[in-house]
Nucleic acid binder design. Structure first.
Length: 500
RNA sequence: GGCCCCUUCGUCUAGUCUGGUCUAGGACACUAGGUUUUCAUCCUAGUAACACGGGUUCAAAUCCCGUAGGGGUCACCA
């Protein structure tokens, strides 16, 4: 890119009608990265000309998610109130409209105002190249609605011109609108920006990834389960939802909760609550449709601001692969300094009400817990699901694990467990290292082939299954009293089972 | 349906503009083996793609034409 005299200005202009979804986040990321790469400005604007669907709450949520991602707009500091809102700039559109009308570009139609097309329009897109649309394919379109509000088309053009936006980066679905916008720029006597349309992000099944996906999935599940109502949803709302009259998220979530169904992550907030960090999400999103070209895959915002440009954006749609996202996340967690991981995990656990028992129970031992799960976690949520037994004694024992580790060879595992119990009861030094040494010294005298001879029965007793972190830290976290209680419960449970 | 766009391993992609160095590279996933008290980590190896059909050329993943498939758009939504 040549260093032009006009500074680069990009913008992200969501309509505050719902949560920020990953497609929007990627558009924001590209816009941010392009501006940073060229030493320009990245601006934010709310497109709230749809009065019915826009809300202040949605604005707040979008801001919250953008902040979480670290994509700060230059016009939101120091005060987020400075972010332009289209509903508050009506004079601007009316002035533009008057100008267009005076030049004979418009006419009234049922209370709305239309803009006259008819000429062929050509423009160059930074990704898709030269585009020419014959005038015959271009219809006169509404630029002001009967309610006096501008349509999206007029508002974007007027605002982008007023904000000196030089590069418009947006989803590919706007490509077909661009001739209209180009014509509007020309009629207004404004300089056209560079347009950069990005390919779409798709679901694994090839359908477009959209915020409505949750509603679709919930509706489908409700149908096949013959659900006729949902908790906390009025009958009217429920039937309206099922009749596809709306895609209300709350209804979808109520249905999902009732059917114990996991809704797909679509919004930035979903990935946040699933335990992904912003850096990982951003990295993965950037790679969907863009790449630095040299087999480099792992990078951060700094790298993007140094290397991002339009020429390496692809033209074809890409499917969102959660496995790869998870792999990125796992890799990132693995490479974190232990203290950083522990801090991040603790912060996350403190923010999730359902994880409060871990904070309460683990207390000052949280660091040990974090360390035990650093190698085993793909997300910040994983330690909670994987390590549930730390806060809740097992209520059942996995049949396979029991057979293999306790029952086999006439209850060899149970005998070993019993023997180990006495040693654990006798020790007065309940620390991870000492406990590991104790177990390591125990298996051979008992005739075991390796440490598993005692470690596995112990795992079953403590967790109900055969999987846990190393025994040393696990025992240390559980504490002597709890450990002995669980062993006793296990021994008793299986004695009874044997006697009956 | 009209118009527009897209098409390399299952997935994300490098390579296409400037045809030969591509017996097509990387990553995720998957498979096998190794390390490990379980799981995970880690190490090694492997399977796997130029949508199809015609051209042009000494030579095509790369250029041209056609076909098929996918996506977008056709609102007083954005």
């Amino acid at each position: 890119m040549s260093t032009s005299s006009t500074p680069v200005v990009t913008r992200f202009a969501p309509s505050p009608t719902g949560e920020l979804h990953v497609g929007g986040a990627r558009t924001a990321l590209f816009s941010w990265a392009y501006a940073k790469h060229h030493g320009g400005q990245f601006l934010l604007r709310f497109e709230d000309t749809d009065q019915k669907r826009s809300s202040k709450q949605a604005e707040q949520n979008i801001l919250r998610d953008l902040q979480w991602l670290g994509l700060t707009a230059d016009n939101q500091v120091p005060d987020a109130n400075a972010i332009p809102r289209q509903s508050e700039r009506l004079e601007l559109y009316h002035a533009a409209l008057a100008k267009l009308a005076a030049a004979g570009h418009t006419y009234e139609d049922n209370g709305a105002i239309r803009f006259k097309m008819g000429q062929d329009v050509s423009f160059t897109d930074a990704v898709y190249g030269d585009v020419t649309v014959p005038g015959a394919d271009l219809e006169d379109f509404v630029i002001q609605k009967a309610d006096g509000f501008p349509t999206f088309h007029l508002a974007v053009v007027v605002d982008d011109a007023a904000m000196n936006v030089t590069h418009v980066i947006r989803g590919q679905e706007h490509l077909a609108n661009t001739p209209k916008h180009a014509a509007l720029y020309d009629a207004l006597g404004e300089t056209r920006p560079v347009w950069c349309h990005t390919p779409s992000i798709m679901n694994p099944d090839g359908s477009k990834m959209s915020k409505r996906d949750k509603a679709k999935i919930a509706r489908k599940a409700a149908q096949s389960a013959d659900l006729t109502s949902a908790d906390n949803v009025t009958p009217d709302d429920f039937s309206a939802f099922m009749a596809k009259d709306n895609d209300t998220l709350a209804t979808a979530q109520a249905i999902a909760a009732q059917l114990n169904l996991a809704l797909p992550e679509i919004n930035v907030a979903d990935f946040k609550s699933s335990g992904y960090t912003p850096a990982v999400l951003l990295n993965y999103l950037a790679l969907l449709g863009w790449n630095p070209g040299d087999n480099v895959e792992r990078f951060d915002l700094d790298f993007l601001s140094q290397h991002f440009d339009f020429d390496r954006i692809g033209k074809s749609n890409s499917k969102f692969d959660r496995d790869k996202l998870a792999a990125f996340s796992q890799d990132t967690i693995l490479k974190l300094p232990a203290a950083d991981w522990a801090t991040q995990l603790e912060t996350h656990f403190k923010n999730v009400p359902a994880f409060a028992p871990f904070i309460d129970k683990l207390g000052s031992h949280f660091f040990v817990f974090a360390a035990a799960y650093q190698e085993r976690s793909k997300t910040l949520n994983d330690p909670a699901t994987l390590g549930r037994f730390f806060v809740e004694a097992p209520t059942a024992y996995n049949a396979k694990a029991v057979k293999k580790n306790l029952a086999k060879n006439e209850g060899e595992g149970l005998k070993n467990l019993s023997a180990l119990r006495d040693q654990l009861a006798a020790t007065s030094d309940w620390t991870a290292d000492k406990l590991h040494a104790l177990i390591d010294a125990a298996w051979e005298p008992l005739g075991g082939k390796n440490m598993g001879a005692v470690a596995q029965p112990l795992r079953v007793a403590l967790t109900g299954a055969a999987v846990s972190p190393e025994m040393g830290p696990t025992l240390a976290l559980l504490g002597q009293q709890e450990t002995l209680a669980r062993i006793d419960a296990c021994l008793k449970h299986h004695e009874n089972a044997a006697n009956s």
